[in-house]
Design a protein around this nucleic acid. Structure first.
Lengths: 228, 228
DNA sequence: TGGGATGTTGACTGACCAGTCAATCTATTC
DNA sequence: GAATAGATTGACTGGTCAGTCAACATCCCA
């Protein structure tokens, strides 16, 4: 039994050690999420973060080397929890749909629990890997590889078609989810508890089962093998 | 017969009017693409654009009201060509796979012809709709709606499953493609002529046919209808 | 040929803001 | 209760850069 699968809220509201230490570092990090989500990383000033955290300007630099490092920390914290979850799910004896479903659920629940954080990660980091170090790329690549591994195994077991490259499938899967969150972030899609649950099912059904009805699928697949 | 479907290169290297006018506006725009792709929108200075274009600093402000407007223009130019293509493709009497395939091909060919421009659009605009006006959101929404319409029609004709919401399917489709380009942009996936062609087929096969083998698909679909 | 319109130049300015630092406060230890 | 280490403060600095503007160039039409 999976004793403690990483939770989508990552234990952010720490309650373990009794609210003894105010832990300013955490306060700053949480404030930064709100500020970045509201104003965007480039548009906000470090003083905005300090104000939002109710802390002196200089303290931000006591805990972090730079404005960038604050964003880096936010991203890495979350991404590592996700990587951990993917590894655990992968190790469990589940059917592919179960594994991919668990990953999709985790990401969607992460959004549900902290939309601001996910907004920041997607809008400011995931795409803008431009300005930031290659560290992020490595993390992102790892996720693709783990998911790719799951797909590969499903292919080996005969559940998934062998002709769709596993790495590519992983990308399509993750891309669909990220686009879904982007839709929520920019209010292009309705949100709400039911929507979130429905979305989990939709993602899996779309990626695994495809959009075509089974009747059509049989016809098409026949004359539609790899070109060349 | 579709006399002149919009081309992925959008006629950038204008040759119609004989190379009479140097058209500094165009020169600036093209230079901006290179600079934005290389350094990122926020990290580059307006003087970098002017230098790259071989033009005086002030001239940028003769043609554009602000640095933002340069990026806006780049995005809108390209996005409108895409919208135009989608509309034309939609009007043609093609099977769904043909329509979606044409759209995927267009986007992938756009990347092939001008990777820098697509990089800028995806990295600086598509996600960062944050900082920019709602104009972009409207454009993006339009694309979703057009693609959604194509899916809807396919559902009405019995080619696509009715239980996967058309708007959602459009999102998953576009998300998969955008993620693919992102993979190329950040060197997470191999590039090259064959890769581009293969990718077109892979996208369509994944989204339409799904990852599952037909045998599995039949089983799963039975006990996997909409929840509730 | 002359004069208005439009294109082109680049030095300059005013605002902005990341990051520094010396001073002050608090907790802990012996 | 003195000494040491770490936490916290916020005024200040140095550099950067978007956008302005006045001057100069070129084109076009009457």
């Amino acid at each position: 039994m999976s004793a403690a699968r990483p939770r989508p809220d990552g234990g952010k509201t720490a309650s373990v050690e009794g609210s003894k230490a105010p832990d300013k570092r955490r306060v700053i990090l949480d404030a930064a999420v709100r500020v970045f989500a509201r104003q965007g990383f480039h548009a906000c000033r470090v003083s905005d973060i300090a104000d939002e955290a109710g802390v002196a300007y200089g303290l931000v630099y006591h805990y972090f080397a730079s404005k960038d490092e604050v964003l880096d920390t936010l991203f890495l914290e979350r991404w590592n929890v996700m990587l951990e979850l993917i590894r655990e799910v992968d190790a469990e004896p589940l059917p592919v749909r179960g594994k991919l479903g668990a990953i999709a659920s985790f990401i969607i629940d992460s959004y549900r629990h902290d939309p601001d954080l996910m907004k920041v990660i997607i809008v400011e980091v995931t795409r803008a890997a431009n300005s930031f170090g290659q560290t992020h790329l490595a993390q992102i690549r790892t996720a693709y590889e783990l998911i790719g591994g799951i797909v590969e195994q499903a292919q080996a077991e005969g559940y998934f078609k062998p002709e769709i490259e596993a790495r590519f499938a992983a990308m399509a899967f993750y891309g669909a989810i990220e686009q879904l969150l982007t839709g929520w972030i920019f209010d292009l899609r309705p949100q709400g508890e039911e929507e979130f649950e429905r979305a989990k099912w939709l993602v899996i059904e779309t990626v695994c089962g495809g959009l075509e009805t089974d009747a059509v699928s049989e016809q098409t697949t026949a004359g539609n093998r790899l070109p060349r």
